[in-house]
Simulated assay, not measured.
Amino acid sequence: MSTQNSTRQKLIDAALKLFTSLGVTETTTKAVAELAQVNEVTLFRHFGNKQGLMLAVMEESAAFKQPGELLLIPAQGDSLGEAVAQYAIAFLQSVAQAPELLLSLIGEARHYPPQNRQALSKGINEANSYLAKYLAAAIEKSPNCGLAPEKLASMLLAALLGYSVIENTCPEQQLWRDRTEFIDDLVLLLKAETTELAINDLPASVVHEILHRAKKAQLRDYALIYVLFGSGLSKQEIASLEKTQQINESDRHLLQINSRQVPVNQWIMGKRYGSYTRNPLTGWLRSRTGEHPALFVNDAGLPMSALDIDLCWQRLTENLLTPEGRSPIIEQARQTWCVEMLSKGMTLENLSMLTGLHLSKLQPYARRVKEKLALEQAIDLDRKS
């Protein structure tokens, strides 16, 4: 090892020791230099400032090397769950080597000056980026995972950091018996997320009957069902909408959902429901008397929650059965819209952008469309016989 590398490592080891015993806030660069038996100028030459030193400790100390080294190789195993478990074990084992460092980094963060917070944020963001790359290959082996690698990495890091804090501050906690049980639960949750979605889109006759019942009920119900079948939004997304998030022009009607826009279709399962400027939704908005910004309000004039929307659906579909002999559930409205869009020629990539769903989550929809097309082809062939 060169003298330069040896000095750098001495400074990192000294900083780790002081961060662990005194905390990041109370540790000074002068104290680190003295413990490493170098002058403070040497510390600045290697790391620039205390923030650079803190990042180096996070990246290079033995406490974090094990999961870091794991990221240098592709995720092992035949499933995403195995890859997650592999990383979780390595992460928790590494943190256990110096738990006080983690507690100091996180527990004192609100007392840090802006530069230290930026350094900590940079370290977390970089760790998330590396972890996402590690998980990407494993996600390819799990086509039903609806999470992008970056989102899965964020969730995994947050869970592991949270567990580490609980484990090292609450020894009598009864949430999990040990790390093994925690990791097992983490993998079980992931399996639930990656379980293939069963697509049960509704036939046109059922869709039009629900819309007919809603029209006979009241304007709000008619508009609500129209949005469910005309835009493919979930009940949670609809509950979050405000009046300013709808854009209706002569050639389009759109709803703004966070950073994406979705169309409100005037044609639903082969039947036209008004125009872009005059339809059940615009009719409901013109009838509104209250000033509340929510797009949909209940009878008391308050924003409709996801539960309110679900109860409205149940009321309108009472005693109505699907061809399978079951009551329609509200999630089938979105499934029906997605299948209809794909059947009309929309690509999976475009549907992903409109729905916000990962491409892998849309694969079951593509198979459902192929099933329907195969059935129609079989029927046409029989007719021509």
Rank of each mutant, 00 (worst) to 15 (best):
E140P: 02
A378V: 09
Q335H: 14
S287I: 07
N298T: 11
Q93A: 14
L359G: 04
V339A: 06
V165I: 15
H253Y: 08
S79N: 09
L120Q: 03
P149A: 01
L92N: 12
L362P: 04
R179A: 10
T244C: 13
V38C: 12
P149N: 00
E26Y: 14
L190W: 00
I329V: 15
P323Y: 11
A85I: 06
L43V: 12
P143V: 07
R334M: 07
S6P: 06
R260F: 09
F229H: 04
T195I: 08
S104M: 03
P303A: 07
A192E: 14
S305P: 01
W267A: 13
G123L: 05
Y273K: 05
M346Q: 10
T25H: 02
P74Y: 07
I257K: 07
S327W: 09
F44W: 12
D308L: 00
N248W: 11
R288D: 09
R213E: 03
L11A: 01
L228S: 01
Q377V: 14
R288K: 14
A109T: 08
I183T: 01
A85Q: 05
L152P: 01
K122I: 08
I379D: 09
Q93R: 15
E59V: 08
G274H: 02
E193P: 04
Q173F: 13
T27H: 00
Q256E: 13
D78V: 10
L197I: 14
Y134H: 02
Q4A: 12
G232T: 04
A33H: 00
Q245I: 13
P263F: 10
L80N: 05
D178I: 12
N279P: 01
L255C: 07
C145Q: 01
A192F: 07
S205G: 12
A14L: 08
L307A: 15
V38I: 13
I139L: 05
G52R: 02
Q314M: 10
N125C: 08
N200R: 14
K30I: 12
A83Q: 01
K361L: 06
K50A: 00
W337V: 12
V339H: 02
A119H: 03
K235L: 03
R110C: 09
L43C: 04
N168T: 06
F47H: 02
E34W: 10
S2V: 04
L72Y: 08
R252L: 11
D251S: 14
L295E: 05
L70V: 09
H111F: 14
E242T: 15
S305K: 00
K17V: 06
G23C: 13
G162L: 05
G52I: 00
L55D: 01
T347P: 04
R288I: 11
L211N: 04
A300H: 11
E26Q: 15
A214D: 06
T42E: 06
L241T: 02
K50P: 01
R368Q: 15
G301N: 06
